[in-house]
Computed example of a mutant assay.
Amino acid sequence: MNREQLFYLVRNQFGIEPDYPWPKFPENAVLRHANNRKWFGLVSRIPGEKLGLTREGPVEIINLKVRPELVGSLRQQAGIFPAWHMNKEHWITVTLEGPLSDEQIVELVNDSYALTR
């Protein structure tokens, strides 16, 4: 899944457009509820080494809220990392470029949306 596919999903499923709150970081997009303004996702492009990856170049990620009791087991899956720049007890970082399937990413996005409602 790439960022455009993710934004298409969020637009069609929740009626939400990405928000770009930081002029200094124009690629960072926040996904937030229209009514309470709470975030349920942060989409960014970061250097792979920030996640401990050995590959060169940037990686497309999304930070998602999850139930604290699931954080440990989720982080054992390839493509899921401790949250980058977020509370690591409640948030995870997921690489959008795989190895998770689109369906797995959609499920995590849906859960994050529900948890922040």
Results as ranks from 00 to 15, higher is better:
Leu53Tyr: 12
Leu53Glu: 07
Thr54Pro: 02
Thr54Phe: 11
Arg55Val: 13
Arg55Met: 10
Arg55Gly: 09
Glu56Gly: 13
Glu56Trp: 08
Glu56Ile: 11
Gly57Arg: 00
Gly57Lys: 01
Pro58Val: 12
Pro58Phe: 13
Pro58Trp: 11
Pro58Leu: 14
Pro58Ile: 10
Val59Cys: 01
Val59His: 04
Val59Phe: 08
Val59Asn: 00
Val59Thr: 07
Val59Gly: 04
Glu60Leu: 13
Glu60Ser: 14
Glu60Gln: 12
Glu60Ile: 07
Glu60Pro: 07
Glu60Val: 08
Ile61Asp: 03
Ile61Pro: 02
Ile61Ser: 03
Ile61Lys: 03
Ile61Trp: 06
Ile61Gln: 01
Ile62Val: 15
Asn63Leu: 04
Asn63Tyr: 02
Asn63Gln: 06
Asn63Phe: 02
Asn63Thr: 08
Asn63Gly: 07
Leu64Asp: 03
Leu64Lys: 03
Leu64Ser: 05
Leu64Ile: 07
Lys65Asn: 04
Lys65Ala: 01
Lys65Arg: 14
Lys65Leu: 02
Lys65Ser: 03
Lys65Tyr: 00
Lys65Phe: 00
Val66Ile: 14
Val66Arg: 11
Val66Gln: 14
Val66Asp: 05
Pro68His: 06
Pro68Asn: 09
Glu69Thr: 10
Glu69Asn: 12
Glu69Cys: 09
Glu69Lys: 10
Glu69Gln: 15
Glu69Pro: 08
Leu70Ala: 13
Leu70His: 15
Leu70Arg: 15
Leu70Trp: 09
Val71Gly: 08
Val71Ile: 13
Gly72Val: 09
Gly72Gln: 14
Gly72Phe: 12
Gly72Lys: 15
Gly72Leu: 13
Ser73Ile: 12
Leu74Cys: 11
Leu74Trp: 03
Arg75Asn: 13
Arg75Thr: 14
Arg75Tyr: 10
Gln76Tyr: 09
Gln77Arg: 15
Gln77Val: 10
Gln77Asp: 12
Gln77Leu: 15
Gln77Pro: 05
Ala78Cys: 05
Gly79Trp: 00
Gly79Gln: 00
Gly79Ser: 03
Gly79Met: 04
Gly79Ile: 04
Gly79Glu: 02
Ile80Pro: 00
Ile80Cys: 04
Ile80Lys: 02
Phe81Pro: 01
Phe81Arg: 02
Phe81Trp: 09
Phe81Leu: 01
Pro82Cys: 11
Pro82Ala: 12
Pro82Tyr: 13
Ala83Ser: 12
Ala83Pro: 06
Ala83Phe: 06
